[in-house]
Each structure stands twice: as structure tokens, then as C-alpha cells.
Amino acid sequence: MEYFLQQLINGVTLGSIYGLIAIGYTMVYGIIGMINFAHGDIFMIGSFTALILIVLLGVTAAMPVAMLVMALVLVLVLAMAFTAVWGWAVERVAYRPLRGSFRLAPLITAIGASIALQNFVQISQGARNKPLQPLISGNFKLTDGGPDGSALIVQLSYVQITIIVVTLLLMAGFTLLINRTSLGRAQRACEQDRKMAALLGVNVDRTISLTFVMGAALAAVAGVMFLLYYGVIDFYIGFLAGVKAFTAAVLGGIGSLPGAMLGGLLIGLIETFWSGYFSVEYKDVAAFSILAIVLIFMPEGLLGKPEVEKV
């Protein structure tokens, strides 16, 4: 039971990170019908940006708590802003010039953009692992190890709390933005009928740009969380995290915002539980197998919208 609870906590944490990245895949797919294969690398850029900022600002665990919190918030916001610019640039350079050309063209430039971002970071930052001393340490002990002290102590670390809380807040805020604001409405309009959106005065190019910007900002948050959680990053982390988050988006139903969140959570849980109970080596296979099985029975994913509604 203790072991199960611990895996659950770890799985939700990992799922939060996947969910934040998955939102970017799903939103871009929704609005331009294309998989942004560079999105995982945008996440990686976010993580590196945060690391560089932490070093530049001299953020360490030795700081007073209030200052540390403020410094980390600042790092988060700056990383989001900086990464958002990268997301915007990728769209402008790699996708917009090809809009309206044959379907495979943007796929090829997407892969090109992904490789370019990886190589850029590899060359400018070096290929080796970048470690970060833990900034947020400490945890809550949820169980006491039983009467004889032999049972596992279930722990919820402060980093995990941070990740889960920040993710929940951002997802709630983002859902409100999409459902309740005129910007979100314009995005959904472009998703459903781009030509009609333009006929109502929506600047479609700008709306698409903003979608990339938002997706990148959320990926940056995931990058910061990843850095704080694992404490080590390299230029290649975007690949596997990107594939997982993409899987999450497809599992939840690509194009669906709640689907991306749910899919992220599920992939995180599947991966963690599989590692915990079966074997670490096959955790990725497990996640992809579940995806394959779900897609056989529900081709549009768990919360995907049926295509028939198109008018």
C-alpha cells in the first residue's frame, strides 16, 4: 500500500510535466493540423534557459526561503518569456512560409527545426550533462513506517508539491483563457473554420503565432520543473519527453485541451507504475502499447472530438 501510494505521487508529478508539454502539441495540432516536432526541443530550451538564469542570478538553496521563492518565480517567468520567443520564431521560420504547400513539407521542416535546436544547444552549451544542486529540498512524510518501523515511508517532496500545484494552477488558468476570453474564442474559431474566423475580423496569422507562443511558454514551465525535479539536463532531453508528451496528446485525443492534460497524467502514471512493479527497461514500451490499444478501440483518443461534427 505504501509502495503504491509512493508510485502514485511520483506518477502524478511526472504526468504533470508531460501534460504541460502535451498542451502545446494539441493546441498547435488543433489550429494548423500539424504536429510540431520541434516542441520537445522547445521544452529543452526552456530547461536550459532556466539553468542559465539560475546560474546567472546565483540562485542557491542557501538563500533565505522568501528570496529563493522570488528568485525561482523570476526564473520561471523569464524562462517562459524567452522560450516563447523561440516558439514564435520556429513558427515564423519553419512553418508559416510553408502554409498551404503540400502536407509533408511542414513535417520535414519541423524535424529540421528540431535538429537545429538540438545542435544549437549542443554547440553553444556543450554535449555533457548539466547538473544542478537541489534548490528545493525537504518533504512531507505521509506515513511513519509502521509500528515496527519496517514499512516504506511515503514521501511527498516539496519539489513534487511545487510541480503539481504550479501545473494545476496553470492548467486551470489556461482552460479559462481558452474557454472564456476573446483570445481563446478566436483560437477555437481558427481551429474550427479558419476562413470564417478571418471573415469575422480575426487576424489568423497572429492567432496562430500566439498559439505557438502559449504552447512554448507552458513547455518552458515543464522544462523548469523537469530541471528542479531531476537536477540534470542535456541537449537531448527534448526528444524522449517530446515523444512521451506527444503520445499523451494522442492518447487524450489530439486537439483536445482536457485530453492533453488527462493523457499526460495517464502516461506519467503508466510509466511510473510499470517501472515500479515490472521493469524499468520496458516502461516506454508500456506507454506506447497502451496508446496503441486505446487507439484501436477509440481512434480519436479518450476525449477527442468525433470528426462527424464538421459541417
Binding site: 476573446s182 474564442r185 478566436a186 477555437r188 474559431a189 474550427q192 473554420d193 476562413k195 470564417m196 474566423a197 471573415l199 469575422l200 475580423g201 480575426v202 472530438k305 461534427e309 464538421k310 459541417v311
Partner: peptide, 20 residues
């Protein structure tokens, strides 16, 4: 062909019209 946004409510469709 009217081009109503199918997955938006009637009210939201009208709000889209009021965008400008």
C-alpha cells in the same frame, strides 16, 4: 453554407461576430 462554428454555442458564435 453559413459556416457556423459547430462546437461553439450560439452565444459564442455571436460573440465571435462582435469581435471587431
Amino acid at each position: 453554407g453559413r459556416r457556423i462554428f459547430p462546437r461553439m454555442s450560439v452565444l459564442e458564435n455571436l460573440l465571435m461576430g462582435a469581435m471587431v
